[in-house]
Amino acid sequence: MFRRAATLFAALALAVGGLAGAAVTAPATASADSCYTWDRTLQRGASGSDVAQLQIRVAGWVGYGETLAIDGQYGPATEAAVQRFQSGYGLAADGVAGPQTYDRIYALQDADCTPIHFSHSEFNDNCGANNYYGGKVSAGTARENIRRVMWQLEALRHKLGDRPLVVTSGFRSESCNAAVGGSSTSLHMYGRAADLGLASGPTQCQMWSSARSAGFEEILGPGYPNHNDHVHVGNKSTRFWRAPNC
């Protein structure tokens, strides 16, 4: 209701300004959101925490083999990711983040800043502990790392025809990771990985293949040891893609 009212107010301001012959500057965004609200148009050359918030939400809209740095700098890579996001949702793909782009993001996120198709309860089972404690990083850092993974998965889900992606493992404490036989260097202990199970709508090979254009540097699937019942996606600094059966 608030969004609609704000939109009508902006339209009225523009109409009145036109009639009066005075220059009226429209607000950078016509809506407000319970999670996060952008209050200016962003484009190449901009910087700040609002750019970083945007980068988190378009991190899955990169090119093949690319990753997007969450550095608060609106450079060519961010511009390209915004363009792909805009194109993916039928918006004018100009690479400038303005009202239409923000409204699309607002429609995609819940009040806790997670994307609408994913929630913390899917990622923080932690062998039944339902928290982000006991890993290689603080609980707050693990939670933020997972939020980026969620937004990458939201992009992946949309690219795969909006078919459900079922998360079978997210964050793991060190003890949980050991209990399930995870690698001693597992990204799960940092909140930087997720496993997508066989109940997902797309096939394993479809998920593995498309994840290469969703910003993930670690992607493991069918044919890789112990990965025949899921696809593992993760964020790391070096690329490691393996799925011999795909």
Rank of each mutant, 00 (worst) to 15 (best):
H227N: 10
S200D: 02
Y89M: 03
A6C: 08
A59K: 00
G17E: 10
G197I: 08
T29I: 13
Q152I: 04
V62R: 00
A194C: 09
L68D: 04
R157T: 01
Y74H: 07
E154D: 09
Q86S: 01
G75K: 05
R57C: 02
A93G: 11
S183C: 04
M207H: 00
T37M: 00
F123C: 10
P225N: 07
N145D: 02
Q86H: 09
R4A: 15
S209H: 13
V96A: 13
D50C: 03
S183T: 02
A10M: 05
M189H: 10
G128V: 12
T37Y: 02
V96K: 11
G88M: 08
V231D: 00
L68Y: 03
S87N: 13
Y36F: 13
T41V: 15
G75N: 07
A52P: 08
L19V: 12
V62A: 01
G182K: 05
N235A: 14
N124G: 00
A30W: 14
A52V: 04
I70K: 02
F85R: 02
Q152Y: 00
C205E: 02
I70Q: 04
G17N: 07
R163K: 14
E174M: 13
V24P: 03
T203F: 03
I105C: 00
F2Y: 15
K159H: 09
Q43G: 15
W241L: 07
S213G: 04
V51T: 10
T67A: 03
A93D: 08
Y190G: 05
L8G: 08
L165I: 12
C127Y: 11
M1N: 09
A11P: 00
A5R: 11
L160H: 01
C246P: 00
D112G: 02
V96G: 10
H232M: 11
G140W: 10
I219D: 01
G65E: 08
Y102A: 07
T168E: 07
T25G: 03
H120W: 15
I105P: 01
V16F: 08
G197L: 06
K159A: 10
A243G: 08
I116H: 10
A77T: 02
N226C: 06
Y190S: 11
T25K: 05
G18D: 13
A142W: 01
G18R: 15
E174N: 14
H227E: 00
D229N: 13
V166K: 12
P225S: 13
Q73M: 04
R84W: 10
A211S: 11
N124Q: 14
G223W: 01
G221I: 00
L153Y: 06
G75V: 04
S49A: 14
Y102E: 03
N177L: 04
G75P: 01
Q83M: 11
N131F: 06
G135P: 05
Y89T: 04
R84E: 06
G90A: 14
G63K: 01
F216M: 02
C113K: 04
R239C: 09
I56D: 02
Y224F: 10
H227I: 06
T185A: 14
V137H: 05
A13F: 14
